[in-house]
Every structure is written in C-alpha cells, then in structure tokens.
C-alpha cells in the first residue's frame, strides 16, 4: 500500500477579518485546530462560516473583491507569508466542496489521481494510490469494477465520496469540508461521517455543517458563528463539542443549538 505520512498538522487562525469590497463579513476570528481533531463550524446561513473556511487554504483570494487581515498558521508557519505559495498551501490543505464536483471529462480513476497531474507531481504507483484513496473514502467496493467509467455516471453521494478520495490522494495534512453532506441522502451522509472519523486519525479536519446532529456526531470541538444586520460575523462560542451543545456559555448559542432560531 502507498505510504501515507500519517502526520496531521495543527492549524490556527489568528484575528481573521474578511472583506468583500467595502463590506466586512468577518471580524477578528481566532480559532485553533489541533492536529487530528475534527472541528465543526456551525451557525446560520450568511454568518461567514464558508468564507472563513476558504481563508484557511487561500481559496478566498480567488474572489476579485476579497480582502483579508490576520494570519493563518500551519504548524506555526503563516500561509499568507509572502514567501509562501498559494499552490503549495492548497496541496497541504485539501478541500471538499458543498456540491460534488468531479471533473466531467475524466473517468473515476483519472479523477482520483487528477490532483497529481494538476499539481505536476509524480507517483510511482498510481494504481495503488487510486485503490488506497478510494478505500479511505469508503467507496472502493462500489467502484472497483468500473474505474474507467465516467465520473458523472456515479450517484450524487458516490460523486461526493469520489471528491473526498480525490482530495485524499494528495495526502493533505488538513482537510476542509464545506457542508459536504448538504446535497446527500441519509445513507451517503452516514458513510461520509464514518469516513471523517477514520480520516481524523491521519489528518486534521475542519467541517462546516448546518446539521447540529452531524456536528455532535463527528466533531471534537465546535465553533458557533453569528452575524447580524450590519454587524460582521464572528465566533460567539468555541469549545469542546460536548460543552458547546450541552452547557453553552452564551445564551445565543443555547438558542441556536436548541433550534430556537436560525
């Protein structure tokens, strides 16, 4: 089997503020993501969770009007340092999107190893990498006989797991997931949640979710984001998942996790 480095990295965001043009959408967010922990970001729509997630692997800067203050440290090194290359950052910090987005012109197999080609890296044994990655995303058994089929022939849930496998093939140290289950049925959701549990043994995971139960099931720690009219989003509460859901300190967190608003 292909050797994965089995070392996760810690990630920490310090005083992140984000603007789109003149409009500030995040104010002073500081969160730490210890190695091998799963962190859930929860909060109502439009509170800046996804935007925050995108600042963690420099996808945020692809939006023309984007602005940013603060720093993101990957193992103590600022990823926004002028010496750092956005491409290298994204290789280390993988991302899974809300909607499954496999490459339509490629087969299942080609999709899994597309990251290698796209980042210009070589792998001595791509077949093994394909199998390992698909196994880790728990989709191997479903696709092992049709690796050369078009990726779009898979169901939505399978496509999303293929996208996870595609990220895993790059052997990231941190995996960011932006509502990975929002378009999926309960069965696929359960499988992806199991996958997250297994993956946390070898990487750090940050997951944005609208599903409280999911946050409780998969995460070790939880951050609750909130924004208001004319007030940029920020973290209201951050702590162990157990504590955030059962003994929230802030009354707004209590209202949100118990479904009183949002």
């Amino acid at each position: 089997m292909t050797k994965f480095q089995e070392t996760a990295s810690s990630l920490s965001a310090e005083n992140i503020s984000v603007w789109f043009g003149e409009r500030q959408v995040l104010q002073d967010v500081s969160l730490t993501f210890p190695a091998n922990k799963v962190t859930a970001l929860i909060g109502p729509s439009g509170c800046g969770k996804s935007t925050f997630l995108r600042t963690l692997n420099r996808m945020h800067e692809l939006i023309p009007s984007a602005g940013l203050a603060g720093s993101v440290l990957l193992d103590g090194q600022d990823i926004y340092d002028p010496k750092m290359n956005a491409v290298d950052v994204r290789i280390k910090i993988g991302m899974v999107f809300q909607k499954p987005n496999p490459f339509p012109t490629m087969s299942i197999r080609e999709n899994v190893i597309s990251g290698l080609k796209l980042s210009g890296r070589k792998n001595a044994n791509p077949d093994e990498l394909v199998e390992t990655s698909l196994r880790r995303a728990s989709i191997w058994n479903e696709v092992k006989d049709r690796l050369n089929d078009q990726a779009l022939s898979l169901s939505g849930g399978q496509q999303q797991r293929l996208c996870i496998a595609r990220s895993l093939a790059m052997d990231p140290r941190v995996l960011l997931m932006d509502e990975p289950c929002s378009a999926l049925d309960p069965g696929s959701t359960r499988r992806i949640e199991e996958t997250i549990q297994e993956l946390s043994e070898s990487m750090t995971i940050v997951i944005v979710t609208h599903n409280m139960q999911q946050a409780q099931r998969v995460s070790d720690q939880t951050a609750f984001f909130l924004a208001d009219d004319n007030v940029p989003g920020g973290v209201v509460e951050f702590g162990e998942t157990e504590q955030v859901f059962n003994q929230p300190i802030d009354s707004r967190t209590n209202d949100y996790v118990n479904g009183h608003f949002g």
């Binding site: 692997n57 996808m59 692809l62 491409v87 290298d88 994204r90 290789i91 993988g94 991302m95 999107f97 909607k99 987005n101 490459f103 339509p104 597309s114 990251g115 796209l118 980042s119 210009g120 996208c163 595609r166 990220s167 790059m170």
Partner: peptide, 12 residues
C-alpha cells in the same frame, strides 16, 4: 466549480 476544484487540489 470545476476551476475551483482544480485550484483547491493545488493546480496552478
């Protein structure tokens, strides 16, 4: 989406 997916995989 496709372009973002490729960039997120570390593609120039």
């Amino acid at each position: 989406d496709l372009r973002l997916a490729a960039l997120a995989l570390g593609a120039p």
